[in-house]
């Protein structure tokens, strides 16, 4: 029974046309669209289809992928004009109610070749906001005496943002990035918020100097497309609005966030570091 259904899953059910953007900036004068027809089954993802085309039809097709299970964030593309991870989008899902699936490289990323974009400036912006925990207690860091413990409330403040894959879907969807190539972008800003509200972090003012600039967090106007397309439900738009609130609170000298209650008694007597 079990075997029967898994065989069903891989039985070809439909022939779908894939319209793929082909462009090599070093050689071609302008991009071309190429069409490939491929038999798909219920479980075929777009990534499976692309790999099959590369193996069987056209070995010159280029795209980037790694894990194939929505954990690495390499394979984000425009599927029918919307940013998606192709490894977790099935072809039949994308071809629903239309006769072809259109694949383009991500908007707002320079094209390297075909479907692969250049992420250099995206990663530079991520690095610019110092995505690591900044500590001032050098004595403790050199001679550690214990762990840095957190309550569940403190953990809940930033957990949602730690899921980010750096896939670039949000950066590509943001209308501000479409013209403003200096804008830090939703991914970097959400990560900045993630580190700023971490109870172990001391780098609040250091990061505010970077974020509160001409092309920092105030260029976000809450179009919320970043949250709309994020494949890991990180919700960067929420992080950015909370970041703005945090910066304004800091401006008036208010505590950035309420100090949480004592650590749960289960951990026992814990020294807060």
């Amino acid at each position: 029974m079990m075997e029967q259904s898994s065989i069903d899953l891989w039985k070809p059910v439909k022939v779908v046309k894939l319209k793929i953007y082909r462009y090599n900036p070093k050689k071609d004068f302008s991009p071309k669209w190429k069409e490939y027809e491929i038999e798909v089954s219920r479980g075929t993802t777009i990534l499976d289809a692309l790999i099959r085309i590369k193996e069987e039809v056209d070995p010159s097709l280029s795209f980037r992928y790694s894990c194939g299970q929505a954990l690495c964030g390499s394979c984000a593309m425009m599927v029918n004009g919307r940013q998606m991870l192709v490894c977790r989008t099935r072809v039949l899902e994308a071809a629903h109610n239309r006769d072809f699936v259109e694949l383009r490289p991500l908007d707002n990323f320079p094209v390297i070749r075909d479907l692969a974009g250049d992420f250099t400036s995206f990663f530079e912006k991520h690095r610019a906001i110092k995505p690591w925990i900044i500590r001032r207690d050098f004595e403790e860091l050199d001679n550690p005496t214990g762990e840095y413990k957190q309550t569940i409330e403190e953990y809940a403040r930033y957990y949602q943002f730690t899921d980010c894959l750096k896939c670039g879907a949000c950066y590509s969807a943001c209308p501000t990035v479409a013209t403003d190539h200096e804008y830090l972008g939703p991914q970097a800003l959400a990560q900045a918020y993630r580190y700023m509200v971490d109870s172990r972090d001391d780098g609040l003012d250091e990061r505010i100097a970077i974020l509160d600039s001409d092309h920092g967090c105030w260029r976000c106007h809450f179009a919320a497309s970043c949250s709309d397309v994020c494949p890991k439900y990180v919700d960067p738009a929420q992080g950015i609005q909370l970041l703005k609130k945090l910066i304004v609170r800091r401006k008036f000298g208010l505590k950035p966030h309420r100090p949480s209650d004592a650590l749960p008694s289960k951990i026992g007597e814990v020294k807060r570091r």
Binding site: G81, R82, D107, P110, V111, P175, A178, T179, D228, V229
Partner: peptide, 22 residues
């Protein structure tokens, strides 16, 4: 233009397929 692949101003007013906030 094609290698940079930027939407430009048309990206501001691109509304189809996104939520109402856009």
């Amino acid at each position: 233009y094609y290698a940079l692949n930027r939407r430009g101003v048309s990206g501001w007013f691109r509304m189809r397929g996104y939520t109402i906030e856009r």
